[in-house]
Computed example of a mutant assay.
Amino acid sequence: MSVPSILPDQAMFDDFKRQCLSTDNWFKKYDDSGMQVWIEQYPTNNKGNSVPKVHKIKCKITISDVSAATMYDVLHDGVYRKTWDPAMLESFDIARLSANADVGYYSWLCPKPIKSRDVVTLRSWQVTDDEYVIVNFSVKHPKFPPRSDRVRAVSIVTGYLIKATGPNSCTFIYLSQADPKGDLPKWVVNAATRALAPRVMRSVYKAGKDYPEWKQKPENLPDRKPWLYPEQTTLCQMDPAELSIQRANSLENVDESSKVEDRSYIES
């Protein structure tokens, strides 16, 4: 009997786009200056363990002066991210899984005394004439287990839908359900996510405005975009069967020290 592939199929991309565009069961928490933030709502009769403790959040920004193609490039360009993401500690691609999928590592700094977090994710993307989709979720990689100095967070689903509205304009949607793990109460996680999302979206938007000038510099290899031209990749090929999905409720790396640090932050 064949084992189902871990790689996203068309149904997953379609479902992700449906969630990005849907207004059903979403409650608007923020609406200002062309930016909206929603959290997913659940029916009042949906009680018990079936209701996720970590909110699914969706942000949308209307962009009038950056093309959809440029915003898509910004999200893929790991070298450029080092210039605009102050929270990033370390980020790198690990291996190629297919022409439109890879596995990578990302870690970020948290305010002290909270331990820094990291994730290993499978990222897949899809491009049509006027639409760009990127989706990722956490996976277990045999050569990148959890580290003692960082807490392994979990991306249940995280991604972007970028749709062109003109030659130099687009709608930019970010959707995520992620658990930072550790001992942070889920209400703190949800509140922090709602507060930070607009700030992060504005940072990505600014990065988009600055990207064309940055990319045109010879040292930044203007013609190199392996996310558009797979033949340019230098990543080694990996069998997706070597990976497994990292479930949010099955982490073995949340050590007691991370819980103590996180708890002290909440109590201070």
Rank of each mutant, 00 (worst) to 15 (best):
E231G: 10
E256G: 05
N249S: 15
D210F: 00
S258D: 05
E242T: 13
Q237E: 12
P230N: 09
R224H: 05
A248V: 12
Q216I: 06
S257P: 08
Y211A: 03
S244Y: 11
N253F: 00
P230K: 08
L221Q: 13
N249R: 11
E252R: 15
L228V: 04
W227R: 04
E252C: 14
E219M: 11
W214C: 05
S258K: 02
P240C: 14
D223V: 02
N220L: 04
K209P: 01
I245S: 06
A207Q: 01
S257E: 13
A241C: 15
P212C: 07
L228I: 02
Q232R: 01
E219I: 11
N220W: 10
N253Q: 06
P226H: 07
D210H: 13
K225Y: 03
E231K: 12
L235M: 01
Q246L: 15
P218I: 03
E252T: 15
T233W: 02
S257I: 12
L251T: 11
A248G: 13
A248L: 10
S250K: 15
P240K: 05
E231Y: 07
E213W: 09
L243I: 06
K209A: 05
N249D: 15
P226F: 07
E213Y: 05
D223Q: 04
N220D: 10
N249H: 12
Q246M: 13
E219V: 12
D255I: 11
L221F: 08
G208W: 04
Y211H: 07
P230A: 01
G208R: 03
E219A: 09
T234R: 04
I245L: 14
N253M: 08
P226D: 13
Q237Y: 00
K215T: 09
T234Y: 01
P226K: 03
S250Y: 14
R224Q: 07
N249G: 15
D223W: 01
M238A: 09
Q216G: 04
S258Y: 03
V254N: 05
K215A: 07
C236G: 06
M238Y: 01
E242V: 14
Q232P: 00
L228N: 02
A241T: 14
L235F: 00
D239P: 02
D239T: 08
L251W: 07
E231W: 12
T234N: 04
S257L: 11
M238D: 09
T234H: 05
E213V: 13
S258F: 03
L221W: 10
E256S: 09
D239A: 08
T234F: 00
N220Y: 08
Q216F: 01
M238W: 06
K215Q: 01
E213N: 12
A248P: 08
G208A: 10
R247M: 15
A241K: 13
W227V: 07
N220Q: 11
Q246N: 15
